[in-house]
């Protein structure tokens, strides 16, 4: 079971108490009525779906109820850090990032095991 640090409860809690809530730091255009359909689609539907380190919103729904931001490695599923909603995108400390990259190399990915299935 993953433990996720909630920046509002100030402690690590079980993943069972949390819900994923999509990519983080997507700003709603201020001129939403004026933008084109393509620009709206870009804002509303299109997501990067990064492989590797990604910034996401999470919600401590069965806890304090708060949304917050998390940096997570989608290959190893490791949470690199979490921080309160409303804060700008936080840089990942170099040491944490190096550790995450090292860990990624030990993870068996779908591509490695199934990607060239004969």
């Amino acid at each position: 079971m993953l433990l996720i640090h909630c920046p509002y409860c100030e402690e690590e809690r079980s993943e069972l108490e949390f819900r994923w809530a999509g990519e983080a730091h997507i700003a709603r255009p201020e001129n939403i009525a004026a933008i084109s359909d393509e620009e709206f689609a870009e804002y509303f539907f299109l997501r990067n779906n990064e492989k590797g380190v990604t910034y996401e919103r999470w919600r401590h729904i069965h806890g304090c109820g708060r949304f917050f931001n998390a940096a997570r490695d989608t290959v190893s599923d490791k949470f690199l850090m979490t921080y309160k909603a409303g804060l700008p995108k936080q840089p990942i400390p170099a040491a944490t990032k190096a550790e995450a990259i090292a860990e990624e190399k030990t993870v068996e990915t779908w591509e490695q095991t199934e990607g060239d299935a004969r």
């Binding site: 409860c9 809690r13 079980s14 069972l16 108490e17 069965h62 806890g63 304090c64 109820g65």
Partner: peptide, 10 residues
């Protein structure tokens, strides 16, 4: 005290 999960219920 804490809001949390117990089995399938909050």
């Amino acid at each position: 005290c804490s809001r949390t999960i117990f089995g399938k219920v909050e």
